[in-house]
Design a binder for these strands. Structure first.
Lengths: 141, 141
DNA sequence: CAACAGTTTAGAATTATTCTAAATACCTGA
DNA sequence: TCAGGTATTTAGAATAATTCTAAACTGTTG
């Protein structure tokens, strides 16, 4: 059983952007295509920008930052905090958990079933739980 | 039942530092006293520096950073990553979990029993699990 | 107490990220 | 199809946390 690598067409990208209430500009389209082309991805702003440049896409770093944040707000991406020096963005917005490879600075999905998260605490008065992050930090041994 | 606020004496601080293999300098002693004086604390480097300055302790920001990292390596502190712009340090080095108040940027311990973390995954080949972080992100509603 | 290694420090440097204000591109209505 | 207005993009400056550097200083040991 092979997973078809869903190469995002321009039209699909455009549609997704409109749905999200974002004007489908050239840059947003191209970034969306990079981000959502095959499987789930975990990348930093600089990494995405580098990739775009490598593929000959003309887009500024500022726009990459803007776009990543807009996509995050629109629910197309998840921002993941595991490294105090940079932010990762995850194209898989369904609840799941991560391995963070501290040596390499690489974030990956934990395959298989989630770690059971049981007995959620009641949040402090006046607050509500926004999300529960589980990060398994690993290192080469 | 009241918890005695264990004001750290200079001697105790010195002893702790020696045990940790750190030369007990004036700065490290004073920072240790601030950090470990009552209950568990969660603070950023800038916050600790501000506190030190407020109490008339002469110490540079660079030293605060150095000290926090040395304490962390020595196992006296835990570094917690919840905010992409700054690092928090936790004086409670026993396993526990956190609420992160996204509005205020405040980190607190989750009171009561830990969230059950069951079914830890096998780490990717060549790696070992270093730690499992559970962060419950909350927001004012 | 001399001498050396470990520490501290101010300030410069670095890094990720955000801001700014000007230029440009998308979209709508006529 | 185009004008006009608003959203978007952008280069470069600005910011913020953190690290680095090299010189001054301090704790320890013989």
């Amino acid at each position: 059983m092979r997973r078809k690598p869903k190469e995002l067409t321009n039209e699909t990208a455009t549609a997704r952007l409109r749905q999200a209430g974002l004007r489908p500009t050239r840059q947003r389209n191209e970034l969306a295509k990079l981000l959502f082309r095959n499987g789930h991805r975990h990348l930093t702003a600089e990494a995405l920008h580098g990739e775009a440049v490598a593929e000959g896409i003309k887009v500024s770093l500022a726009t990459v930052y803007n776009t990543l944040h807009q996509f995050t707000q629109a629910g197309l991406l998840l921002q993941v905090v595991v490294d105090p020096t940079r932010s990762y963005f995850d194209t898989n917005t369904v609840y799941h958990q991560h391995f963070y490879h501290e040596d390499e600075g690489i974030l990956t999905d934990i395959p298989g079933p989630d770690i059971a998260v049981d007995g959620l605490p009641t949040p402090p008065p006046g607050t509500e739980i926004k999300r529960v992050d589980v990060v398994v930090r690993v290192r080469k041994h």
